[in-house]
Amino acid sequence: MGKLIYVTNVSLDGYIEDERGVFAWFPLDEEVFAFTTDLLRSVGTFLYGRRLYEAMAVWETDATLAAQSDLMADFASAWQAASKVVYSTTLTTVSTADTRLERRFDPAAVHDLKATASSDLTVGGANLATQAFQAGLVDECQLFVLPIVVGGGKPGLPTGMRADLELLDERRFRNGVVHLRYRVLGQRPTTPSDSPALG
């Protein structure tokens, strides 16, 4: 059985996009890039929303990326080796191999996919990850926390629910990025009693 892992880059204040929809806040770092490539090699299936899929598909459709360096070639190879499931109501076709298009996120189907998987799965995109969290399907949360505060935008983690986590591992990179790996112990909708008392 495979684990479902939510992997994302977030600002220090918890956003994956700023208020203008920008997320490219930090220059490419070889140490972080190599670490991310190793992470992808352990994944058998990527679950994507449309926007993230279209951003990532260039690693298969644009050969000039892999040609830039051995590091980028390794990343492209790791990305292409995994299966992809794309959730979109607007896409009519996909541009990459071994990719399935689904119109809606079906928790039961993802549960079955996990149960039959021989390697781990990742879920990418905050909206899709929120649906997976709400369905109780996310086993791990891995965050690359970038040393920047953007002040607002799209939250990287679900709102309106509480999740209890156990820290499994952490790594600090030379450029100030910190990788945090958590096990998800359980989640539930937030209630008024979850709010801290003010006195």
Score class of each variant (00 low, 15 high):
76 A>C: 12
76 A>G: 07
77 S>V: 01
78 A>N: 07
80 Q>M: 07
80 Q>I: 03
81 A>C: 12
81 A>P: 13
81 A>K: 12
82 A>L: 07
82 A>T: 06
83 S>K: 15
83 S>Q: 15
84 K>T: 01
84 K>A: 00
85 V>G: 08
85 V>P: 08
85 V>I: 15
85 V>R: 13
86 V>G: 04
87 Y>C: 03
88 S>K: 10
89 T>G: 15
89 T>Q: 15
89 T>L: 15
90 T>I: 08
91 L>R: 11
91 L>K: 11
92 T>A: 07
92 T>H: 13
92 T>E: 14
92 T>P: 09
92 T>L: 10
93 T>N: 04
94 V>L: 03
95 S>N: 06
95 S>W: 00
96 T>N: 07
96 T>Q: 05
97 A>F: 05
98 D>S: 10
98 D>E: 12
99 T>I: 05
99 T>D: 00
99 T>K: 06
99 T>W: 08
100 R>M: 14
100 R>P: 04
101 L>C: 14
101 L>M: 13
101 L>E: 11
102 E>W: 14
102 E>F: 14
102 E>T: 07
102 E>I: 10
103 R>N: 15
103 R>Q: 15
104 R>A: 14
105 F>S: 05
106 D>F: 10
108 A>N: 11
108 A>W: 06
109 A>C: 14
110 V>Y: 12
110 V>S: 14
111 H>L: 13
111 H>S: 13
112 D>L: 05
113 L>P: 12
113 L>E: 02
114 K>C: 05
114 K>P: 06
114 K>Q: 06
115 A>N: 11
116 T>A: 13
116 T>S: 14
117 A>S: 15
117 A>E: 07
118 S>P: 12
118 S>K: 14
118 S>A: 12
119 S>H: 13
119 S>N: 11
119 S>F: 10
121 L>P: 15
121 L>A: 08
122 T>K: 13
122 T>R: 15
122 T>Y: 11
123 V>Y: 09
123 V>W: 08
123 V>R: 08
124 G>R: 04
124 G>N: 10
124 G>Y: 00
124 G>T: 01
125 G>S: 06
125 G>K: 04
125 G>Y: 02
125 G>A: 07
126 A>I: 03
126 A>V: 03
126 A>Q: 04
127 N>V: 09
127 N>R: 09
128 L>T: 08
128 L>H: 10
128 L>P: 12
128 L>W: 07
129 A>Y: 05
129 A>K: 02
130 T>H: 02
131 Q>Y: 08
132 A>Q: 02
132 A>L: 01
133 F>G: 01
133 F>P: 01
133 F>Q: 01
134 Q>Y: 02
134 Q>M: 07
134 Q>A: 13
136 G>V: 06
136 G>E: 02
136 G>P: 10
137 L>C: 10
137 L>T: 01
138 V>F: 04
138 V>W: 01
138 V>K: 03
138 V>Y: 02
139 D>H: 06
139 D>P: 05
139 D>Q: 13
140 E>K: 06
140 E>L: 05
140 E>Q: 05
140 E>M: 09
141 C>H: 06
141 C>S: 09
141 C>P: 02
142 Q>M: 08
142 Q>C: 12
143 L>D: 00
143 L>Q: 01
143 L>W: 09
144 F>M: 03
144 F>P: 00
145 V>K: 05
145 V>R: 02
145 V>A: 00
146 L>D: 01
147 P>I: 00
147 P>Y: 06
